[in-house]
Design a binder for these strands. Structure first.
Lengths: 218, 218
DNA sequence: TTTATTTTTTAGACTCACCTAAATATTTAC
DNA sequence: GTAAATATTTAGGTGAGTCTAAAAAATAAA
């Protein structure tokens, strides 16, 4: 049984391991948790004692099989709740993260089973991220960065990498949503920005930065 | 801003004040929280400092206007979540309390507004308890104990006082539910038990104890 | 009304999850 | 390869929220 703080650490370690290097460094973890390095050292010792990570002094933390399962359970809950908030309660996709951060810690396997059924077993959350099933299995669908899409090739928006409210609001504003057809008209050499067509009608420019935070079908 | 533990204390103080004597004694509170009296003394000092109760040494705790508003906000959330669990997710009424105890602490006014709307602004929860509105107002409907109902008078089950899973499961088993028509056929002098008819068809006996935990229309 | 019992508070201690400051180890730069 | 910079850990401390044991106050009983 993990405490709330421990759950958040395990989740962060999982995300840092997935999206980059493993083992996870104390500093990286401290930054992602908005804590100080000394606090992280304390915590990773506790997590190691509980068997959710492997830890060696001055080396870093590696998530264990048990830890990965824990992380996936939490992520599953987070994404199911986000889906619920958007699909059932009418939240916008930029409003759900904070609330889901709280809801993901509710302990009730029955609740999650029933919520999953109520939502009709969704495969992805409102940001296009896959929802692990009850066994922790994730269905990975091949996606590429929009910035790497060939010019003129028809594609579809599949997910957002950076899910900050500001970015999501911007995407809504220019008509981008998960499932939207998209095509690159031209790549501007000067700054790497792209001229794109969304939904076959909305033409606009987006920065390189934005194009590197959107995933599309390859 | 109250912590999770503080929220639970305020709720308990509110319930104890309502359902009995005020001021609330340290011992009563300790019992209801499953904590020791010394811990309670600590906590009520903190709560007094935050202005949610008035506290005098060796006297007891009285909930303040602010504290009452806090308690009602938490109770509102608890009962809305219970309603959601039963009406939308298909929980049984004896399965919801523990989960709602967790969900009631989620901080998001928007979530509660939207949940309320999603449930179509319910007036009572699955146990027949009134749901405070967003201003903390409760619509009290006149109810009497089943044990005090006149023999032969037609009535309707309105709420359960004791909401333990065991009692709720028993009620389901004998066909009692919120809104069920009920009539007392006979009062057994020996032990105060009642012969009742539910729904105009199910005849059965219930103990005095059970009849003192069911509220009906007067 | 004095004593006994119960209730409440105080004192001191513990765990969790954080902190700062200082020490130590590792990495990078010259 | 040594020095400087950076990363990590240790040591000691804090507040929240609990505990036990003992002291103090209030209540009940003789």
């Amino acid at each position: 049984m993990l405490s709330l703080a421990e759950e958040n650490y395990v989740k962060a370690i999982y995300h840092l391991s997935e999206g980059g290097k493993s083992p996870v460094s104390t500093t990286a973890l401290a930054e992602s948790m908005n804590n100080k390095a000394a606090s992280v050292t304390d915590m990773i010792k506790r997590l190691a004692a509980k068997g959710v990570i492997a830890y060696e002094k001055y080396y870093g933390a590696n998530i264990s099989t048990k830890g990965k399962a824990e992380a996936l359970r939490i992520i599953r809950k987070h994404r199911l709740w986000e889906t619920f908030l958007v699909q059932k309660l009418g939240f916008n996709w930029d409003e759900v993260h904070e609330v889901a951060e709280q809801l993901e810690h509710i302990q009730s396997p029955l609740l999650i089973e029933k919520l999953d059924a109520f939502l009709d077993y969704p495969a992805v959350d409102p940001h296009g991220h896959p929802i692990p099933d009850k066994h922790g299995k994730i269905s990975e669908v091949k996606q590429i960065l929009l910035s790497e899409l060939a010019i003129g090739k028809k594609s579809v928006i599949k997910s957002v990498k950076n899910g900050t409210p500001a970015f999501l609001q911007y995407l809504s504003k220019i008509g981008i949503y998960i499932g939207a057809p998209i095509k690159i008209v031209e790549r501007i050499e000067f700054d790497g920005s792209l001229e794109i067509v969304i939904d076959g009608k909305n033409k606009c420019f987006i920065s390189r930065d934005a194009s590197e935070n959107l995933m599309v079908t390859g």
